[in-house]
Design a protein around this nucleic acid. Sequence first.
DNA 1: TTGTAAGCGTTATCAC
DNA 2: GTGATAACGCTTACAA
Lengths: 347, 347
Amino acid sequence: LKRPTIRDVAAHAGVSHQTVSRVINGDPRVAAATYDRVLTAIRELDFEPNAIARSLSWNRTHTLGIVTYNVSEYALGQTVAGAEAEARRHGYFLFVGSVADESGVADEEAYLRLMLTRRVEGLILDWPTLRADNGQSLVAVTARVPLVAIAADPSLPGVDVVDIDNRRGGFEATSYLIAQGHRVIATVTGPPAWNAAGARLQGYHDALAAAALPFAPEFVQAAPDWAPDAGRAAMVQLLASCPGVTAIFAQSDMLALGAMAAIRDAGLRVPRDLSIIGYDDIPVASYLDPPLTTVRQPIRELGALATELLIDAIGQRQTGEADRPSRHLLPPHLVLRNSVARRPPIA
Amino acid sequence: LKRPTIRDVAAHAGVSHQTVSRVINGDPRVAAATYDRVLTAIRELDFEPNAIARSLSWNRTHTLGIVTYNVSEYALGQTVAGAEAEARRHGYFLFVGSVADESGVADEEAYLRLMLTRRVEGLILDWPTLRADNGQSLVAVTARVPLVAIAADPSLPGVDVVDIDNRRGGFEATSYLIAQGHRVIATVTGPPAWNAAGARLQGYHDALAAAALPFAPEFVQAAPDWAPDAGRAAMVQLLASCPGVTAIFAQSDMLALGAMAAIRDAGLRVPRDLSIIGYDDIPVASYLDPPLTTVRQPIRELGALATELLIDAIGQRQTGEADRPSRHLLPPHLVLRNSVARRPPIA
DNA sequence: TTGTAAGCGTTATCAC
DNA sequence: GTGATAACGCTTACAA
């Protein structure tokens, strides 16, 4: 039951435990013969160095923590996969924790502290509604280890923030609709508490302004969540309040899906009667009817980037460099399919 | 930079470090006044017990590891979320590792050993193509810590196996088609290397046999992967080789999606001309056109169950009980929507 | 080239 | 009740 230690190996090989330590650390000063003898002993006993003991001695755990909040399981999987791959590439392990569902802010902080207890060297926080005013609890944490926040408000002080450029995504989506000849464009946004919703809406506004297109408050409907049902309800509203609308920018593919259902229910067709562009490029998007034009998000890359920055920051703290918080925006990518129709310019 | 230790706290409170240890472990023998003094010191220094040192002393890490192989990111997220929640409920932390993409079997084992190095107390392996003949490398691992395999072949020796009852899912899906009056039913399976594909196919066969329905080899098309394109190609085949077919059992919703595209391309309509039932109940399933009848998989629960069994097994090993490997099957759940039509019985 | 001693931060054991 | 002292398994000195 008990696992062998370097002392067991040492006894087995007839050397001191220190020599064993040298071997497992690749110290070149060990004589070749001794080296082999130790290696054989290691193999025979199936010895595995105890990383816990090493951590204690090194005062380094090579461990990162990621805690996610209220993210869809799809995005969660992508983010974690990206982060994990990057972490491993650098010899780090990754603790996961999700604060989804039942828990609130308090639990959030408690979890981060638990991770500190485990002596993670850095933390990733995936919390899309995090802003300066609800992120106070983070300062105590960042005093201990660097933290990079995914999808947080960029104005959040003291931490690195990475995100996909939502303003740009909203801008490109809307500009595309404009380029296709649309002049009255409505939008279904996500929940206003999400930073992404505000940024994408800003992009929408910017695109309208850049084209000197009219805007009216009834052009925007905020959905209470990102699910299809909310998109459907919002679309019903839009249909009633924006008679001249020819195109919709939905802030997620799921919202777009619901909106398309509402459009169908109204006896209209996409894209003949109404064009729609989504956001996310979920795996089924190209198999919808019609295939959905949308904005792809490099979520996996986002997880990887967060991890890379975190590992950088860890290195900086160790060398005593000042790690001033940075902001990084990954570009989204327009994916053209068939849910947007070209509209002949008015003569 | 350096974090406070129990000795710092002890000095600050004017007691021995041992007393601090007693306080943070809730030892009742500490005098109330001393207790308070220590607690104050802890708060003032913002002391957090070092779990690494505790692990070394206790010889227990309260850490689990999950390594996933080649699973879709959606399922990955669900599984990890379920496992993590259950782990936390029991005071465990969870290391994640995914061996997706570029890596093969060798890397697989190396990763498990890395986790052992980290002294995880148990391992979850999510490897849907794992069977007795390719799982040899696991015996060395299970000698160290208990392992529960998700979606592995139940005949795999020496480890707990949990899965969703794929045979039953296939049986219920097919039986439902039969109950709706269909007599010639074809199926699009997943890659044969996946245990789930074989089991669901078995369920299909069992249902046909139970209803004394005819079967022909051309009724089954195996897709090389689980994606829509593969489903589309398989469906094209089926359309050509099974003229009398009235219903399709697709082993995943993504395959079904592709199949539906092929059906549409052939000028046919679902469910009027051809009924189809999927598998998974992906989030968009109810918003497809038509809403997809399918079989829901409790993946999150599967992750939780795996974790629960693992923690049980850890307890058993510690008390020296024999932990004979167990098999657990979670029931899938038929979700009725509109992609299957009732077919009048032949008079 | 190898071995010995001390320390990493905590808990267990035994005194007082 | 509280405080020394010795583990836990390893690494980093320093000595031989």
